[in-house]
Design a protein around this nucleic acid. Structure first.
Lengths: 149, 149
DNA sequence: GTGAATGCAAACTCTTTGCATGACT
DNA sequence: AGTCATGCAAAGAGTTTGCATTCAC
């Protein structure tokens, strides 16, 4: 089942009404998949012809996060990023290019193992985690070499 | 050598002038150590009697980060956090309580190993990383159990 | 003296909220 | 019908910037 369908069903079960704006936000999130900002969602909805107010986008994201249907994270550029949370619990983390701001996803089993081992030994009850690797993406490394900048 | 002294020397060597406001910001950062926001630095400076404008705090932090003397990170509460970067490269990561917002530091060798292994296999040139574990701190778990909330 | 750094206030961006209107169930 | 959800616009929080002044070298 696609994430967007799963999300809509979950919201309905949780007692939320099925409104056009919220459905559109879910559709947009399902379409882009990874690491979008609220602004990007708004732009996508605009280009689709779905006119949704900013407030509704934020409110939809708030509900989705509360229901565990989206994960919110931050790569340090002052705009929160959101992405679908898969019911399987499967997830990834992010590479961020410090030069151009590009965000790319990666998965790593070894990292997950290290984190779950760690989660057991700390005194907090851990229920989520976030890893961000920062550096230079291949394109930026390339152009820097070429232009000596 | 204390971090604050190291930082001041590094700035001077890099050609920055040694001004009272910037020196005060370095002093404040050195005093608190871990995960402070710009606002907290401002408050500390106020209580010390050092009157430093917000803009200067941000500008000082910008310079320090550019020189690799402080690390900036984000725990998702919409205010950037800063902490001294030790010249040894030694560093830690953070536990964040989702209930009360408390931020605590931890170190984990296994995690660092997993990350450096990972950094070698991705196509970005990684030069930094950030790990945030989210959950409930001991105090919040306790009070929740006691008050059933 | 000259240019860098400061402080203030205005400007900006992202996000949240109050409130009247509109839309699911 | 009764609410919940929306949209707009105003309000907030954090951060940045323009500009005249002050200070370090």
């Amino acid at each position: 089942m696609k994430w967007s369908e799963h999300a809509l069903v979950s919201l309905e079960r949780a007692g939320y009404r099925s409104s056009a704006p919220r459905t559109a936000v879910v559709g947009a999130l399902g379409a882009v998949g990874c690491g979008v900002t609220a602004r990007q969602i708004g732009n996508l909805l605009d280009s689709r012809g779905d006119r949704v107010g900013v407030a509704s986008i934020y409110r939809a994201l708030e509900v989705l996060e509360a229901e565990g249907l989206v994960q919110r994270f931050d790569v340090g550029d002052s705009a929160a990023r959101y992405e679908p949370a898969l019911p399987s619990g499967e997830h990834h983390h992010h590479l961020v290019c410090e030069r151009c701001g590009e965000v790319e996803a990666f998965e790593d089993e070894g990292l997950e193992r290290a984190i779950s081992r760690l989660a057991r030994r700390v005194d907090f009850a851990i229920d989520a985690h976030d890893v961000t690797l920062k550096g230079e993406c291949p394109e930026c490394s390339g152009s820097r070499r070429r232009s000596s900048r």
